[in-house]
């Protein structure tokens, strides 16, 4: 019997409605959690090698994380437009540029442009050459495909591994970390790209050395504020480029040098060597051996940068400027010249 003080009993319809609502919420919540699990996969710390063991290709593939943009959300430049040194007005003297002399032609790729595109699929005559730059690891290197596929072009996956640009090739959709230059997934997994080193210098120094240089322009097909660097400033030494931390997880790490200290990362056979760029500046010349091959790192006063060549032939060695953290994360067994 219901009295004045008895609580009102809910109708059957309301009870069923409440049960259905709670059941629906549980299903959505459970589905969301499952989707999150499937999407996230292993955490970078779980997937990457522990301690100082070198990561395998599979471990690196498991350590891939989203950088935010979608595939080609950072659009590569596929139809690069060049101008003469006297015809560009968007560069300042101390802007960073990446220079290259290939097939007798000098070209320069400004960092203010590449920071927004990361890949330029260029050609020199009949030769394909992809110029790449990763702002987060401070690495720039050119690729001329593999021995079997010299005409490869690349896009950006929007993903990162150890904070490094993860490219994909448009032939097979295999994934290639820029620093490693070796495919970590896809049908070309394990294959290695042929590398062409670029010169990291300033606009003033490069055009003085190569007055006939062609300059990559801001006519890229995309609209960007090329006067702004979203990560910081090399000119003013500010932001991400000088901060000790990284935005994305990196494993393994090492504190032999500051995380953003620039090293010359040199590869020879299965061996690697890192020489602080500042050391080469101070000493002028540093001789070393990598994988049984003698190399010489020399400071170029005119270009205000360091270059590494093979001692036997004088040809450029396989090297790149890199932030220490990124070089160590891919080559934890690297030798170091302190």
């Amino acid at each position: 019997m219901v009295t004045e003080n008895s609580p009102r009993q809910p109708g059957r319809r309301q009870v069923l409605k409440g049960a259905a609502a709670l059941g629906g919420l549980a299903a959505v919540g459970g589905g969301g959690a499952l989707a999150w699990q499937l999407r996230s996969g292993d955490s970078p710390a779980d997937g990457a090698a522990a301690g100082a063991q070198e990561s395998t290709l599979d471990e690196l593939a498991n350590a891939v994380v989203s950088g935010g943009p979608g595939k080609d959300g950072i659009p590569p430049i596929d139809d690069p437009q060049f101008a003469g040194a006297g015809d560009v007005d968007f560069l300042q003297d101390d802007d960073i540029v990446f220079g290259l002399v290939y097939s007798g032609e000098a070209r320069v790729y400004p960092q203010p442009v590449l920071v927004w595109h990361e890949i330029v699929n260029d050609t020199f005559g009949d030769d394909r050459l992809a110029v790449t730059y990763c702002p987060l690891t401070g690495t720039t290197v050119g690729f001329t495909g593999t021995d079997e596929r010299p005409d490869m072009t690349f896009g950006t996956t929007g993903n990162l591994v150890n904070s490094n640009l993860l490219m994909y090739d448009r032939d097979t959709d295999s994934d290639w970390p820029q620093v490693l230059g070796t495919a970590i997934s896809g049908s070309l997994k394990g294959r290695q790209l042929r590398t062409v080193p670029l010169v990291w210098t300033t606009w003033r120094a490069w055009r003085a050395e190569h007055p006939d240089t062609r300059v990559l322009t801001t006519d890229t097909g995309a609209l960007r504020d090329y006067h702004r660097d979203p990560y910081g400033s090399y000119r003013e030494q500010s932001g991400y480029y000088v901060d000790e931390g990284t935005i994305f997880p990196v494993e393994p790490t090492d504190d032999t040098f500051g995380s953003k200290e620039v090293v010359l990362g040199i590869r020879g056979g299965d061996s690697q060597l890192a020489i602080p760029k500042e050391r080469v500046r101070e000493e002028g010349t540093v001789d070393a051996e990598v994988g049984g091959v003698g190399v010489r790192a020399e400071w170029d006063e005119d270009l205000e940068t360091a270059r590494v060549s093979r001692a036997d032939s004088g040809e450029p060695a396989d090297f790149m400027d890199a932030m220490w953290f990124s070089w160590f994360s891919f080559y934890p067994d690297t030798e170091v010249r302190r």
Partner: peptide
Amino acid sequence: IVRALGRVGDAVD
């Protein structure tokens, strides 16, 4: 439990 479910139903409405 029945009363709680009924309240959830009222909230849905």
